[in-house]
């Protein structure tokens, strides 16, 4: 349910501005431009700038001290581990789901696509709650897990599960429309010529979908790093053990340690900027690839 139909090029706006039928009178144009840019600055640019100014308000020394704090480092480590498990899981799932949905005809296909998108319409808090109901102390498997001394809720596995849930559809939803649009002629040709299934996938399908795949992975990764609500429910907030970066930001903020909170937040904001940069780069690359094939 995130950005719809994404990989498309941007047309040049001058063709509208040079056409009397498609341009507005100057004052209308400047009013629309002024209002929309003010809206952009107030709601998007200003919060971004605020993160970095607040982080550096007390100088670089405080900033670096906050980041090299032991609890901050363990939060960074846990976040990296979580993303390193959740993203590959959803990547394999995304490819598998896109393969069966885009390359074959079967009943219930549309319904299956809707089910895959389901996690996007569930509140993050509910996403955390469902695993508490399954694996928490009073949950379905709570007794069995306790008897076997396995901890899922208020431990790392719960955090990974919640993260997998909230990032579930990212790769699949990028690949399904892309692979549907590409059809299956190339794969069928390869198969008929004697290539095995895996050979067909690695040498024919993968090169065609690589940009869409990367696009999904990057969005999935950004969300895995930044998830707050779902992880907050299952984490238990144990400092140095089950705190991810966003949760650590919350703890520092609630202790009125604003400089440190914004320091950790600035790392996440940097990652967001890198994500957006890569995203634009991939859109440009994918635009070139589709131009070449035309």
């Amino acid at each position: 349910m995130a950005a719809a139909g994404v990989l498309h090029g941007r047309a040049d706006a001058r063709r509208y501005e040079n056409n009397a039928a498609t341009r507005e009178t100057p004052w209308v144009k400047w009013t629309i431009l002024g209002i929309s840019l003010a809206f952009f600055a107030l709601f998007l640019l200003l919060p971004l700038v605020a993160v970095f100014t607040e982080a550096l308000r007390k100088g670089w020394v405080t900033y670096l001290t906050a980041l090299s704090d032991e609890d901050a480092l363990s939060a960074i480590k846990l976040t990296l581990i979580t993303a390193a498990i959740a993203v590959p899981l959803n990547l394999v799932f995304g490819v598998s789901a896109a393969w069966c949905i885009a390359k074959f005809q079967f009943r219930g296909k549309h319904f299956l696509t809707t089910l895959i998108d389901l996690p996007f319409s569930v509140s993050p808090v509910v996403a955390g709650l469902i695993y508490v109901l399954m694996f928490g102390a009073h949950g379905w498997f709570g007794g069995w897990l306790a008897a076997n001394d396995i901890k899922i809720i208020f431990a790392v596995p719960g955090i990974v599960l919640a993260t997998v849930f909230v990032t579930f559809p990212f790769v699949a939803r990028e690949l399904i429309p892309l692979m549907e649009a590409q059809g299956r002629e190339e794969e069928e040709a390869a198969t008929v010529l004697g290539a095995s299934g895996w050979q067909t996938f690695w040498r024919v399908t993968l090169p065609n979908i690589k940009w869409g795949l990367l696009y999904g992975v990057i969005l999935c990764n950004a969300r895995a790093f930044g998830e707050f609500g779902a992880v907050s429910v299952v984490s238990g907030h144990i400092r140095g053990q089950t705190n991810t970066m966003p949760l650590h930001v919350e703890i520092l903020y609630n202790e009125y340690n604003f400089a440190a909170a914004f320091a950790v937040a600035s790392l996440l904001a940097l990652l967001a900027l890198v994500t957006l940069g890569l995203k634009s780069f991939i859109e440009w690359k994918a635009g070139q690839q589709s131009k070449e094939s035309e």
Binding site: F225, V249, L268, A269, L271
Partner: peptide, 11 residues
């Protein structure tokens, strides 16, 4: 979409 919600919240 890219900025973690907690970061947006404190900002």
């Amino acid at each position: 979409f890219a900025l973690p919600t907690a970061v947006a919240g404190i900002a």
